[in-house]
């Protein structure tokens, strides 16, 4: 609900780039379901301004001598910092507790239907359930094939 990446529907069905709306999402506001205070006759801009968190009283804050670091380090940089700490081998870190790769052979499922896939199309690399699905795969354009493959992280990466 909170930080889900936004995806828009596209005709191709491929992972379309998220529609970036830097401005207020007016269309979302016009639908009553988005605004809990739908009964109020306020304009959307008024709603937004009335919710401004900056206007809340903050007597507890020490804003004179402290401010948060301006440069933000991404997780990758944080990993480098953690590595530099030279921790003992058996010390549990965010990175070494990752689940290991599986020892079992991965089961194969149809890329289109999700059913079991006994076959693989040697040309596109797509796995398929039966001849119906194969006929469908034959009609796919190369970039559609790639987007199907990307569903299981098998698309060609440039």
């Amino acid at each position: 609900m909170c930080v889900l990446p936004k995806a828009t529907r596209s005709r191709s069905g491929a992972g379309a780039p998220a529609a970036k709306r830097a401005k207020l999402d007016a269309s979302a506001l016009n639908t009553p379901k988005e605004t809990s205070a739908s009964s109020s006759p306020l304009r959307t801009i008024d709603i937004v301004l009335s919710l401004d968190a900056r206007a809340l009283p903050k007597p507890f804050k020490n804003s004179s001598s402290y401010s948060t670091p301006k440069a933000v380090k991404k997780l990758k940089q944080i990993a480098a910092i953690e590595k530099a700490l030279d921790l003992p081998v058996d010390f549990p870190t965010y990175w070494n507790i990752e689940a290991p790769p599986s020892f079992k052979p991965a089961k194969k499922y149809c890329d289109v239907t999700g059913l079991e896939a006994p076959y693989t199309d040697p040309k596109s690399g797509l796995r398929f359930h039966n001849s119906d699905v194969y006929q469908f795969i034959r009609t796919l354009e190369p970039h559609h094939v790639q987007s199907y493959l990307s569903l299981r992280d098998a698309a060609v990466k440039l």
Binding site: L24, D25, A26, A28, E34, T35, L51
Partner: peptide, 12 residues
Amino acid sequence: NDVHIGGLNSNS
């Protein structure tokens, strides 16, 4: 939740 109420989800 104010983000949802204000309709700014796409900007969060």
